[in-house]
């Protein structure tokens, strides 16, 4: 039994999402083979070979794969899956993985399971549906199981410690259907809310817009995005696009720090899937404490500057 895992990378660095996907493969069991498809990406293959638990790295280094165009990479993956008899093809549920894998699945005439959050058995998986408001247990009936993996649901394997062999793949698929024109890497000082690893949000307890500067200082130190509750937006403290919740952004960072937010269900609807939730609120009965992993009952005007100082 073997799993082919599509490595996520930018031709020079192996992205951490790959490590979570390897963890999912480990949960399935069997050999784990990492495919690094790109252009000038030997360095990535080197990093991939060191990932704990990886048995082999396949390196497809060709201009056709430089921008990971699905039209070119999908036939490569489908061909490898078939010829080498992989039973599983996995990719991180990132925009790259989501763009590629369904195309692979269709070429193999099999279904695809999106965004799995747990491995129940060799053919049965759990995945969120209805934006995470229900969890489906799904059994795959196909011989080759093509799956994207939600990173936050699997603790990453170690980036080092492995010593896999690297094997070159020479097959070149250039469909000639699409070309890379350009890209614009979001280069704001602060990450976007929906992409941030850490978010610090303020609520009505912040008192006014100027006080959000307290949160921004913490955010700068943590590389975090700054969010807000609807009450803070409605009171005019901050603009609408910072709102997290049912009618705002839906986020699931690794760390969510709620400051002066009571924790109404409509706010929770937007952040309850965060990995770790911290609440800072002066009311010890605030509902936010019922979902917070770490609660600090304190006046935010004392606690937040202290937090900033201690980071």
């Amino acid at each position: 039994m073997a799993t082919l895992i599509i490595a996520e990378h930018d031709n020079s660095i192996l992205k951490p999402a790959t490590l979570n996907t390897v963890a999912a493969a480990a949960a399935i069991g069997g050999d784990a083979v990492l495919l690094v498809a790109g252009e000038g990406c030997q360095a990535v293959a080197g990093q991939a070979a060191q990932v704990a638990g990886v048995n082999k790295v396949l390196l497809a280094d060709n201009a056709a794969y430089g921008h990971q165009l699905a039209e070119n990479v999908a036939p490569l993956v489908a061909e490898l899956a078939k010829s080498a008899g992989f039973e599983y093809v996995l990719a991180p549920a990132t925009t790259t993985g989501k763009n590629l894998l369904p195309r692979v699945a269709a070429l193999l005439d099999v279904g695809q399971l999106s965004d799995i959050v747990s491995v129940e058995s060799a053919d049965t998986f759990k995945r969120p549906i209805y934006a995470g408001n229900a969890i489906a247990t799904v059994k795959s009936l196909d011989a080759i199981k093509v799956i994207t993996v939600r990173g936050t649901a699997f603790d990453p394997v170690a980036a080092e410690g492995g010593s896999a062999s690297i094997e070159a793949v020479t097959a070149v698929h250039d469909a000639g259907l699409s070309r890379f024109v350009g890209e614009e890497v979001a280069k704001s000082d602060r990450p976007e809310l929906t992409a941030a690893r850490v978010i610090i949000s303020g609520g009505r307890g912040m008192g006014n817009g100027e006080n959000f500067a307290l949160l921004e200082k913490v955010a700068d130190k943590l590389g975090a995005a700054v969010g807000a509750s609807r009450a803070a937006v409605d009171a005019g403290f901050v603009p609408n696009d910072m709102q997290v919740g049912q009618t705002g952004k839906i986020v699931a960072p690794e760390l969510y720090i709620a400051v002066g937010i009571s924790g109404a269900i409509q706010h929770l609807a937007g952040m309850k899937d965060s990995k770790v939730i911290v609440a800072i609120n002066k009311d010890e009965e605030a509902p936010i404490f019922q979902v917070a992993d770490y609660g600090l009952v304190a006046d935010l005007f004392d606690a937040v500057p202290e937090l900033e100082a201690s980071l």
């Binding site: 699409s178 890379f180 890209e183 614009e184």
Partner: peptide
């Protein structure tokens, strides 16, 4: 809209 930014492709 890709993770971390925008990418433009020319599609036949």
């Amino acid at each position: 809209e890709v993770d971390g930014g925008l990418q433009t492709l020319g599609l036949k």
